[in-house]
Design a protein around this nucleic acid. Structure first.
Lengths: 248, 248
DNA sequence: CGCAGAATTGATACATCTCAAGCTGGGTGG
DNA sequence: CCACCCAGCTTGAGATGTATCAATTCTGCG
């Protein structure tokens, strides 16, 4: 469990990779120091469940590195992903005792955690944290609503193109390849996880990816490495306004 | 436009029907008085568009009475409802210049509005407002995620049953008929609006409602008045855990 | 009355699911 | 080093649920 050496895990908030995007991004030096005192890191291996839906949770936290998914499952096993947690995303809800969704590490994952009670106290005393959390929550709400359009009204091909464009866009914003026509990235999800995200079966995901490849919209190297020769073309396939979603 | 007489519109916050649920619900008397000074009411007729997606918005506000919908539309006309706004729900996003979605009055509607700038200033100075808005936003996010499961993984019949159970539940919580086996309510939406909510066509909505009627899950009086003889039965049809969604 | 919007119902088309068979690439043990 | 294995993925053929197109019926209202 403690397989990550201390060297891999940031300890100084000043050097934290998510310093400027996470829930703490608006904190002043003194506030950061107080947070520093109540924070602790947890590591998870790919595939591990971080939180089980319905369980009591005593912590909240931020994804520092790696990717996790938020999923809902019906009794008969049908599952729907309802969120994709990337570095800087916040996990857990202040003021709620038990988790609403399963959180599963898709890759190896490091989280910066706070016990819930101290964090809630800190939040009440620190407007900059509450403000930032509100802003992040509003962004997530917009993303969820964007996704409702995908789930409710788009075809399988458009769904795949939408997912690829979102991953491509987020990836670009991290690497500063924003305005390039061509974009290159790795899929962080299995076909099955994509299916759960898109409300499809994995077979349909596979077929549509093959179709996009056949039509030259994307080029695959191996199963996971994606090259998009013309990102605007992908956006058109996604059914999005070509000027790019304003919200994602 | 000013067809609502002054008598119909509440002016005193103390008598406001959404006083204890809206964004102002945690305000003290003095805070309420300050809000009172910057608030104003707007009325809309059924069918009127309150806000157009993409337009600059200079106000935010709460639904006081009536129902509105939040919808997204693709260029080719496919539309998806992404929110249903009932009394006390908040409209608009502090800190954003333009609207992300169309807001349309489904019934006659009264809103309690604030110009955005004064409201933002007030929010910065009044933690109780910011806190309540965060809480409401988190609730909306949960509702949106619940809906993603409905859109992505449920059958048409389950979708209809889910919608009916949500309306029935909200209605019950307003009228205190919480634990009755039988529930009675009016549908606030046309078949087409239901279809837009559920990611279906109106024909499919109609067929599935007929099927639920035929199977005795619901009884209809006219097109809009619904009687649910056994609410648990409806929840089973919705594919929900029978102990009721914890979140909605 | 008779019109218009809303809803229902029917017949058919089609997209996606389901079930089933094979493929691929990386790891393991003989 | 090779044979094997296995999870992840691809592809095919047929079944099925929902959309589409079209024709009525209902309901409220001028």
């Amino acid at each position: 469990m403690l397989r990550n050496s201390a060297a891999e895990i940031p300890h100084d908030c000043g050097e934290c990779p998510i310093r400027h995007r996470a829930v703490c991004s608006r904190c002043e030096a003194d506030e950061l120091e107080r947070l520093d005192q109540i924070k602790y890191y947890r590591s998870f291996q790919a595939g591990q469940t971080v939180i089980w839906a319905g369980d009591r949770t005593d912590f909240v936290g931020s994804v520092v590195t790696g990717i996790a998914t938020l999923t809902q499952t019906m009794e008969d096993g049908r599952t729907q992903m309802v969120g994709l947690l990337l570095p800087s995303d916040f996990v857990g809800r202040p003021g709620r005792a038990s988790a609403a969704y399963d959180v599963v590490a898709t890759s190896d994952l490091v989280m910066c955690c706070f016990r819930k009670k101290p964090f809630e106290d800190m939040m009440a005393a620190t407007p900059s944290i509450a403000q930032r959390l509100l802003e992040m929550t509003l962004d997530e709400l917009d993303a969820a609503r964007e996704w409702m359009l995908v789930l409710g009204r788009k075809t399988a091909r458009e769904k795949i193109a939408s997912l690829l464009s979102i991953i491509g866009r987020r990836n670009a914003s991290m690497n500063g390849q924003e305005n390039t026509r061509e974009r290159v990235f790795d899929l962080p999800l299995t076909r099955e996880a994509m299916a759960d995200y898109l409300g499809l079966t994995l077979e349909t995901v596979s077929r549509q990816i093959s179709a996009l490849k056949r039509d030259g919209v994307i080029v695959l190297e191996g199963k996971r490495h994606v090259i998009v020769p013309d990102f605007d073309r992908l956006l058109i396939e996604a059914g999005d306004d070509c000027d790019g979603g304003l919200l994602t």
